[in-house]
Nucleic acid binder design. Structure first.
Lengths: 117, 117
DNA sequence: CGCTTAGTACGATAAACACCGTACTACGTC
DNA sequence: GACGTAGTACGGTGTTTATCGTACTAAGCG
C-alpha cells in the first residue's frame, strides 16, 4: 500500500467570531450558566491549552455537552479545533482581555456559587 | 384584605439578597440582557444615587420594566427603596466590588454592543 | 472491512424568559 | 373622597434554552 495514500486529513473546521465581533451580552450569557462556567474554570486551571470535551466529566449527556461548548464557542469565549477524533478547546484569554479588559479575570476570581444550581 | 392601622407611612419594603448571598451566575445573567445592561450603565453614569424607574425611558412597557428591575434587584445588582410614589434604584457598587472584585468595572468599561440586540 | 471512540445533528420536551395589556395598590394633591 | 401618578400583580403569548435519546459522521485500529 503506497505511503502517499493518506492525503490531508479532512479538515473539519468550526466557525468562530472575530475578536471585534465579540458581544458583551453574548459573553455574559455564555458565562451565566453553571455548567459553562465550570468548563471555563477548568480550562483556566489547566491553562496549558487544549482539553478534549470528554476531559470535563460534566453531569450532562453528550449532546447537552456539545450544546454548551457551542454556546461558548459562538460567543467567543473558547476556541475549538479538531485533532483526530477529539475536539480540543481552549480559552480565548487574549481576545477576551483585549476586548473586555478585566472581565474574564474577575469572573475567574469570583467565589464559585454553592455547587448545584 | 386586612386594613392595616395606618400609623406612619406604610413602609413598602423590598427583599434584597445579603452581600454574601450574591451568586455569580445570577449577576452575570442579570447583566446579560441589553435592557438591564442599559439600566446599569445609566445608574453608573449618574452615580449620585437614586433614580426612579421612570427616569430611564426604556423601549418597553411599564410591566416589562418592572420585571427587569426585579431581576436586577433579586440578583443583587441594584438596591431599591420607595420614596413617595416612586421606587428609587441605585447600583450596589460596594457589595459587588467586595464579592466580585473588578467585575462591575470590567462590564462598565466594555464597549457597548451595536445597539439593538 | 468491521469495530471503537469522540463528537455532532436532529428532533422532541419542558422550563425559563421577554414581552404585553389590564387591573390593581400606594401615595400625594386637590 | 376623587383624581392623577408611579409602580406592581396577574395572566397570557411567543421565543429561547437546557435537556435528553437516537441516529449519524469522522478518525483510528486491527
Amino acid at each position: 500500500m503506497p505511503a502517499t495514500a493518506r492525503t490531508a486529513a479532512t479538515v473539519r473546521t468550526l466557525p468562530h467570531p472575530a475578536p471585534e465581533e465579540l458581544r458583551l451580552e453574548g459573553v455574559l450569557h455564555a458565562l451565566a450558566d453553571p455548567i459553562r462556567l465550570r468548563i471555563v474554570r477548568t480550562l483556566a486551571e489547566r491553562r496549558h491549552e487544549n482539553l478534549a470535551c470528554s476531559a470535563f466529566e460534566l453531569p450532562v449527556s453528550k449532546s447537552t455537552s456539545t450544546h454548551h461548548f457551542r454556546v461558548l464557542r459562538e460567543s467567543g469565549v473558547i476556541r475549538q479545533h479538531y485533532e483526530g477524533t477529539s475536539c480540543l478547546s481552549r480559552l480565548r484569554r487574549d481576545d477576551l482581555e483585549d476586548r473586555f479588559p478585566g472581565l474574564l479575570t474577575a469572573v475567574l476570581q469570583a467565589p464559585p456559587s454553592p455547587s448545584g444550581k
